[in-house]
Design a protein around this nucleic acid. Structure first.
Lengths: 213, 213
DNA sequence: GCGTGTGAAGGGTTTCACAGCA
DNA sequence: TGCTGTGAAACCCTTCACACGC
């Protein structure tokens, strides 16, 4: 789980773009494209060609002047940059609709992410297979997190229960939390929490389309 | 759906913070807090007090020197800034786990968002009630979108089908799309697409926690 | 010629210190 | 005294023009 080598840091602003490039490149690789110029990439990714060249040049020179970038090389590089070498183990709490959607998400493995545990408080869900894991009771959380070496915890429960789940995850020794509950969870400074608020995405979309009219 | 008055534009960088403040303020309002200082807000929201004051001062002066901000005033203001006055009608395509999670999401109404239609291609789902809407066949999309005056379309189908769905939404007259499928959809310039890639959030979390160690 | 990599210019965002008001 | 609002400074990020390599 540690960044292995002397890679440069990627800032908060740049990382989403890197992930976006990776999406594009993976699609290009699947359609057997071998090289692509920053100009072509720009059209697909909707990001300026300047920006793309700057971003990629940060990791070293792997573009061919006169030709462009080698697709499969670029893919390997980007996967490397974002750190997919070591597997990252994920535990999810709350096997509702959202939780199930995440557990059944395809394509994690190729990117070094895997679910190793899932928890719920509903007796009816315990023992069921969801994605690749069997749902456990939330009372097992601490034990299971340690046994399965969980690195990241996902909160996919209702806003009411989010803080309680966060506390349990932290108590179990987890330092990184992805929070899907539409509420602020408070945690000690050493814990990294990333909030994903689905309704905020809608609000942002509405805001920007309305403004641009 | 148009921004009503002479409000200042909020940039791409600032909007997420505004939405974050709003979350905090809504929680404070629920716990009957009446005023809060930028310093206290800073601790809860994990954003510097300088930043908060700058952001809020952009919308006018509604802080009381020596006291702080009035919680319910601030809430009203922020809701106004992000444009919750007019209802925004949403249509969703793909009533799988993720789609169902979105349709059942609580708290949209208060923020001026409502689902007015949902579509799927599976016969078994057609006619079922999900959240507040009845699932229709995707062949009805164009007709239903126009009848229900849908402003925003959500793509919650698999990567394979995302482009097809995007095309249908655009053909039905929609200009704003929120895409949850882990793939790039290509659209004409006048269409606004916002991608939400759940796996990217995990990757970003992993990256930043690994780097900070 | 074509397309990358890069230093320099430009623009925007964050930090800061402090004036001004309750 | 306590806390906001704000101009100035520092910082970062994006854009650009062009030198260099294929």
């Amino acid at each position: 789980m540690n960044r292995s080598s002397n890679e440069k840091k990627v800032s908060d602003v740049v990382l989403p773009r890197i992930l976006h490039y990776l999406r594009v490149i993976q699609q290009l690789a699947r359609s057997n494209m071998t090289t692509i110029s920053s100009e072509e990439l720009s059209k697909i990714a909707n990001i300026s060609a300047f920006q793309i060249r700057k971003d990629l040049a940060n990791f070293g020179k792997f573009g061919q002047p006169g030709t462009g970038y080698d697709v499969s090389n670029l893919k390997r590089y980007l996967l490397d940059v974002i750190g997919t070498k070591e597997m990252c183990n994920i535990g999810l709490v709350g096997v509702g609709n959202l939780g199930s959607a995440l557990l059944n998400y395809k394509g994690f493995d190729e990117e070094g992410l895997q679910f190793v545990a899932a928890f719920d408080k509903e007796e009816s869900k315990i023992g069921k297979l969801c994605g690749n894991v069997i749902v456990e009771h939330i009372n097992n959380l601490k034990e299971s997190v340690q046994k399965n070496n969980v690195h990241i915890g996902i909160i996919a429960v209702s806003a009411n229960n989010a803080q309680m789940v966060a506390d349990k995850l932290i108590e179990a020794g987890i330092f990184s939390i992805l929070n899907f509950a539409p509420t602020i969870v408070s945690t000690p400074k050493e814990i990294t929490v990333r909030d994903v608020d689905l309704s905020n995405e809608l609000k942002a979309l509405r805001y920007f389309t309305a403004v641009n009219k």
